[in-house]
Simulated assay, not measured.
Amino acid sequence: MSSDLPMNPELEEIDGKIQDIFRALQNGFQKLDNIKDPNRQSKQLEELTGKMRECKRLIKEYDQELKNQENQNPPEVNKKLNEKKQTMIKELNSYVALRKTYQSSLGNKRVELFDMGAGTSDPVAEDNVKMASEMSNQELIYAGRKQMDETDQTIERSKMVVEQTIEVGTQTAANLKGQTEQMGRIVNELDTIQFSIKKASQLVKEIGRQVATDKCIMLFLFLIVCGVIAVIIVKIVHPNNKSIPDIPGLAPPAPTGRKLLSA
């Protein structure tokens, strides 16, 4: 097909690489039918996916080169070259759809994003998707607004997450502050209890010393009383014993005859 259209060397080289990838994709999917091992099938699909990405990159280069030489070619030639580009995109889309079919049959439920460039739609995701260079101004404005709306929604969700995080952090800080104050009160109470225990210990010691002193005094008084009682008993038993001094109030009365004589 490239021989029917006038192309510069750059376009011919890109077109040749794209056609080589298409043949490789066709052969790869044919081999995939003969592979029975699911792991080998997954590996083969990964290799084919890499080739699709490379083909998408080459289609972009083809489109850019086509724009560069657009002024050098007649309108009919540019029209045919653009039709050829659309044919390439549709063929690549068919392989992508085939890849998804094989993935579904393998039970692979992972969502894979086939990155086709930032700010543009994926031309291999659907057959009717256009490249950014072919979209009208209205379509570009619509796509941009849609992207901005999605970005705004993402920002709002992020704000909600941040607010929730701040709220949780504030609540956690308040709980920690309350626990710190409670620990402070407990420490103060422990200090008061320790001081009270020291005071009680001192009081017990003083009481013990006082009790010991009182016991000594009582013992001394008991000994004195015992001594007095012993003297009284001895004086009663031996009233004429002069070695025992008289106890006031217990001495025998003086004879009355002596008083008469002295009188």
Rank of each mutant, 00 (worst) to 15 (best):
N108L: 08
K79S: 14
N78K: 09
S94G: 05
N73I: 08
T101W: 05
Q41V: 02
N82T: 12
Y62N: 00
T101K: 08
R53G: 13
S121Y: 06
S121Q: 09
G117P: 07
V124P: 02
K80L: 14
Q69Y: 12
L98A: 11
K60F: 15
R110L: 12
Y102F: 06
R110V: 14
E83N: 13
I89N: 00
K43P: 00
E70R: 15
A118H: 09
K109A: 11
Q69S: 15
K109I: 15
S121T: 07
K85Q: 13
E65Y: 00
Y62F: 12
S105F: 11
K51Y: 07
L81T: 02
D115R: 12
E65S: 05
N73G: 03
V124N: 05
V96D: 07
G50P: 07
E83V: 08
R57W: 15
E54T: 14
D115W: 12
L98Y: 09
Q86R: 13
E126C: 04
Q44A: 15
E65C: 05
K67N: 06
L113E: 13
T49W: 06
V124R: 00
G119C: 03
N82H: 10
K84G: 03
K51T: 06
M88L: 10
D122N: 15
V77P: 03
C55P: 04
K84N: 05
D115L: 04
E112K: 10
S121W: 08
Q72I: 03
Q86N: 11
L98P: 03
L45C: 10
L106K: 03
L81I: 14
P123H: 06
K56W: 15
E83Q: 07
S94C: 02
